[in-house]
Every structure is written in structure tokens, then in C-alpha cells.
Nucleic acid binder design. Structure first.
Length: 229
DNA sequence: CCAGTCAATCAGCACC
DNA sequence: GGTGCTGATTGACTGG
């Protein structure tokens, strides 16, 4: 794929920027790496001392990730507990840099990066997997927080608008406390200006105080709904 | 079917 | 000892 080439170049650039002082190994042969993967830790250590400039971890004996030690059939422990690889600052920084550019890598890129960092292909793969998962998790948390704030704002706004509406209604109606207690349904059924809603026998009661209040309040309601607010 | 990815989970380690 | 971070494993899913 043409992408491979381009991306490998960018990987190399990334690494060049970050770890300029680390010379890119001249055609570091895979067999060499593979050999180390197949050796038991001690044997590998011996070879590493000879062949590789290793990082702090290896110097401290902290670089433990060996497939032979954790072959698929030997589930967890060959010899009790496993040690955990801790990436060096430089390794982490390089991985981070590249992750910023590409959150996923193709196999060739992973291999190239693994060789650059003295890691295994699988380790790079796992690192990117975890990084993606944790980035996603963080983003989800951020989104969640954002939505929570939005919800709070909308609730406040809703409350504020309700209050405002209530105040406006009270102002227009004047000092008649009856109106506030009237439900929309009630005002609609009794309104004289809205003939289709008017029940036939309600005409008789038009002149009562309560109906006058209801009528006026419904007229106000209509005007508010139609264009006022 | 296989390789790659993801989600869930485990587990070691450092820090408090 | 509890907790957070992070490397590693496993199983399910998916596209080619």
C-alpha cells in the first residue's frame, strides 16, 4: 500500500525529532529481533548486553516482556508473578508523538516503530490499543461533563422563562388572583371569543364575574400564544 | 478463515 | 492499604 510508505516516513520523522540522538539502526534485521523474542529472559539479557544499546529499564532488568514466557498456552505464570514492563520516558514520548499523528498504525508502521524503540511489535500494538481506549474514555468523560452542564443551563433557562411568563401574565391581567389559578383548559372551554370551543349552554352564564375573568384571561392567553411571547 | 480492532478485565507498580 | 495508571490478556466482532 502506498500509505505504508508515506506513514513510515512520517514515523521516521517523528522519531527523528524526538530522539535525534538515537541513530536509527541501519537495517536492523528482523531475525535479530525475532531471536531475542524466542529466548528465555536470561539468554536474551545476555544477547541484549552484547547487541543492543538498551534503555534504563533493561539496565535495571525491568524489560520483561517475552512471548516465550507468556506463550498462549501458559496463561499467566511460568514462575509465579510476571514483571511489568515500564516504558522509558523517551519511549512513551515517542509513542505519544506518533499517536498524535496517527491513532492507528498499520503492521509495517508498528514494526518500524517497535524496532526504533527496541520494543516488540505486539507491545507497540498493545500500547496503541490501550491508548485509543483510554483516549476514548477520557473523551466520553469530557462529553458527559459537557452535556451535564448543558442540561443544567437549560434547566435554569427553563425555570427563568417560566417565571418570566408568569410575571407577564400577572402584569397584564392586573391584580386578579383568580387568573393565576385558572387552568388553560378551563379558560379555553369558556372563552367567548373562541366560538368553536364554546359550549352551547354556556352562553347563559356569560355575564357572571367568573366568566368575565375567564374570558379576559383566555383572550390574554390567546394573544400571548399567537404572537406576544 | 484470518487479521485487526475494541471492550472488558486483570495485574504490577508507584504514589499517597 | 487504597488508588490510579498502564502494560497485557482474552473473547467478540468485523471486513476483506
Amino acid at each position: 500500500m502506498e500509505d505504508d510508505e508515506a506513514c513510515i516516513t512520517s514515523l521516521s520523522l517523528g522519531l527523528g525529532i524526538r530522539g535525534g540522538h538515537v541513530p536509527k539502526k541501519e537495517k536492523q534485521k528482523v531475525p535479530c529481533l525475532d531471536l531475542s523474542f524466542e529466548l528465555c529472559p536470561k539468554a536474551e539479557e545476555a544477547i541484549d548486553v552484547d547487541q543492543h544499546h538498551h534503555d534504563d529499564n533493561m539496565a535495571k532488568g525491568l524489560c520483561f516482556n517475552h512471548p516465550i514466557e507468556k506463550s498462549p498456552d501458559s496463561n499467566h505464570s511460568n514462575h509465579g508473578s510476571r514483571k511489568k514492563l515500564k516504558l522509558t520516558k523517551e519511549q512513551s514520548a515517542t509513542l505519544e508523538d506518533i499517536f498524535k499523528l496517527h491513532s492507528t498504525l498499520n503492521p509495517a508502521q508498528k514494526q518500524a516503530l517497535a524496532e526504533q524503540l527496541n520494543l516488540k511489535h505486539r507491545q507497540v500494538e498493545v500500547w496503541f490499543q490501550n491508548r485509543r481506549a483510554r483516549t476514548k474514555l477520557k473523551q466520553t468523560e469530557v462529553d458527559c461533563e459537557f452535556l451535564k452542564k448543558c442540561c443544567e443551563k437549560l434547566t435554569d433557562e427553563n425555570l427563568r422563562l417560566k417565571k418570566e411568563l408568569q410575571e407577564l401574565r400577572a402584569q397584564r391581567i392586573g391584580p386578579t388572583p383568580l387568573y393565576i389559578q385558572l387552568s388553560k383548559a378551563t379558560t379555553l372551554t369558556i372563552c367567548s371569543s373562541c366560538e368553536k370551543l364554546l359550549k352551547p349552554n354556556e352562553g347563559n352564564n356569560k355575564g357572571t364575574i367568573s366568566n368575565i375573568v375567564r374570558n379576559s384571561s383566555h383572550k390574554l392567553q390567546n394573544s400571548i400564544e399567537l404572537g406576544g411571547i
